[in-house]
Design a protein around this nucleic acid. Sequence first.
DNA 1: ACTTGTGAACCATTTCACAGCT
DNA 2: AGCTGTGAAATGGTTCACAAGT
Lengths: 216, 216
Amino acid sequence: MTKNVPAKTVGRLSLYRRLLRRLDARENPHIFSHALADLAGVSAAQVRRDLMTVGCGGSPARGYGVNELIDELSAFLDAPEAQNVVLIGVGNLGRALLAYFPARRPRARIVAAFDTDAQKAGRVILGCRCHAVSEMEEVIRREGVSAAIIAVPAAHAQDVAETAVRAGVRGLLNFAPVPLRVPAHIYTEDIDISTSLDKVMYFARAGFGADDVRND
Amino acid sequence: MTKNVPAKTVGRLSLYRRLLRRLDARENPHIFSHALADLAGVSAAQVRRDLMTVGCGGSPARGYGVNELIDELSAFLDAPEAQNVVLIGVGNLGRALLAYFPARRPRARIVAAFDTDAQKAGRVILGCRCHAVSEMEEVIRREGVSAAIIAVPAAHAQDVAETAVRAGVRGLLNFAPVPLRVPAHIYTEDIDISTSLDKVMYFARAGFGADDVRND
DNA sequence: ACTTGTGAACCATTTCACAGCT
DNA sequence: AGCTGTGAAATGGTTCACAAGT
């Protein structure tokens, strides 16, 4: 069924949904592609093409129905039932993620965390039970976890990724500053903060003329 | 001079440099494009093209000199002197970033942090002086800050971005889950953790056949 | 008059493939 | 024999532009 929607499109659809939810649908129950495009910082044609890709339609007279769109996007983006997620690495970043996620993402339940620090094993940190890394494979299997968030130092990232994949995880959100070598059918999203800062520092440098920077 | 190198290429160059630094140049003072490609998870042709773009050369016999490459990449990526950066928003994520960055990025000095919480103003958090947001414009000007890291809630992101830009910042690293509307000559890198998790959740779902997922 | 939906054109980026070097 | 450097081709993604709808 799913017609091979590009990752970039999925990303924008997630953004559209978030922006639409911030709108008060009572004030304005409909929105035109160019208005949503403005909010998202993309072109109107891009919005229409993205929505078309997942079968969302609007009317030339009124545009797209806000609530309708939110529901259709959710039907596309969300799995039928909530998906279980684990966090690997409960350092500074890991704790920030624990504080950030559970609140606003009820469809992705962080069911367990793992850390090599023996002090942390067994404790409950920010509402999330923390286990030793040695228990990871068993817990992931038992809980039917579909994705893992990797927030460990570079040196351990490949290792924990392999363990997670062996246990049946199908998606990885990788904050470690190294690319992971995993089988092709495992989806990996890298969030490389160091590289991002390098890019910002590079383009923030004085010396770019009229600034014809090609961003993506 | 700088010949309009695409942001994606700059990102990979930053990655190559990081990977090369992890190598022990004594063990292996030279590296072939396919070996570096393997480490970076890209094609060998990609590596050669990227290095060519910034004028790095190798020899068909030995490949590229590791230390030489690190130096050439640094000459390209780094500004002549260290650049000053500020952090806006000292919540959970902001503190994690403070703990993460200063250690490993000596070229990007986080010279100040800002928060609306009056409790934090004046204090030194993780080695970084924290100011009230009202002082932001003045501090950014005084310190000659070239980039800002935005780690505030969605509702405040546009506001603080505008203030930072008004004060002369040229690059933004945005962790808030909304796109920023800033002038075209300001480089913005969005790190949208919510969207990234949505993408992982989407592609981690069961039901993708032989997995012909188009990633980027 | 202003919109949506969409084939076609366009553009950026990646990969191919091979000449030239060692 | 195996590499680098690089035009040329291919791929993937975005924008154009316009027919059709209201």
